[in-house]
């Protein structure tokens, strides 16, 4: 199939269609950034109000787990970028394998996150009035964990959504749907995954390395 056969009737050519799709994706990503910005605002206000408490509470998180997760997400972003590169060169099956690697990294990320959360639950490091940890007594400590669970929770939800998108793209790549010069879906799905990576790049120093 020629790339031209993918052009919808209201676009003069494939190039314009790709431009429009990409711009639409950037608009969507802008709303995602603003969604997270709300949580980052809450974080900033409470870190400003309870600076010392946030530093103490942050020490109850596992820096090792956070660092490993950062490396895992960065590497998964690389494999998505490589998948896009491969599919552009008509190597759909190789791209599908690259996306499979990404999904593997995403599962590792979620597994480490689950281990961290379980650990937090056992320590009583929970949001708001559920906070029962005995070592952290200063005002604002429950607020740190409210912010922590909201931010990592929303981010984790995005990881799951991104995994779903990438899994669908992986199957389509394997079947050779994008081997003929039309690769926009892989590019846009990849952009979503890079955004998930982008958010984590900020969450890591702000939550774990105070």
């Amino acid at each position: 199939m020629q790339p031209e056969s993918y052009v919808a009737h209201h676009y003069p050519n494939l190039r314009q269609q790709e431009h429009a799709a990409r711009l639409g994706m950037w608009l969507f990503l802008a709303t995602e950034i603003l969604l997270f910005a709300g949580l980052f605002t809450g974080y900033s206000v409470y870190r400003f109000l309870y600076a010392e408490t946030f530093a103490q509470a942050s020490e109850h998180l596992s820096v090792a787990a956070g660092t490993i997760n950062t490396v895992v997400l960065i590497t998964s972003s690389l494999s998505v970028a490589l998948a896009h590169h491969l599919v552009q060169h008509g190597r759909g099956k190789a791209a599908a394998l690259s996306l499979l690697v990404t999904l593997g990294f995403a599962l590792v990320f979620l597994a480490i996150k689950a281990w961290e959360w379980t650990h937090d639950f056992h320590e009583g490091l929970l949001p708001g009035r559920f906070f029962t940890n005995a070592e952290l007594t200063s005002t604002g400590a429950p607020m740190f964990f409210t912010v922590y669970f909201l931010m990592t929770g929303l981010h984790g939800l995005h990881v799951v959504i991104g995994m779903t998108v990438l899994a669908i793209l992986m199957v389509l790549c394997w079947r050779g749907a994008y081997d003929h010069g039309y690769t926009t879906p892989v590019e846009l799905g990849g952009m979503y995954w890079h955004l998930v990576d982008l958010i984590w790049i900020f969450l890591y120093p702000l939550l774990y390395l105070i």
Binding site: L198, I201, L206
Partner: peptide, 14 residues
């Protein structure tokens, strides 16, 4: 550093 890392992701991966 986080901004520099994001700039790399946005400029080249995205």
């Amino acid at each position: 550093i986080a901004c520099a890392k994001s700039a790399l992701v946005v400029l080249f991966f995205m």
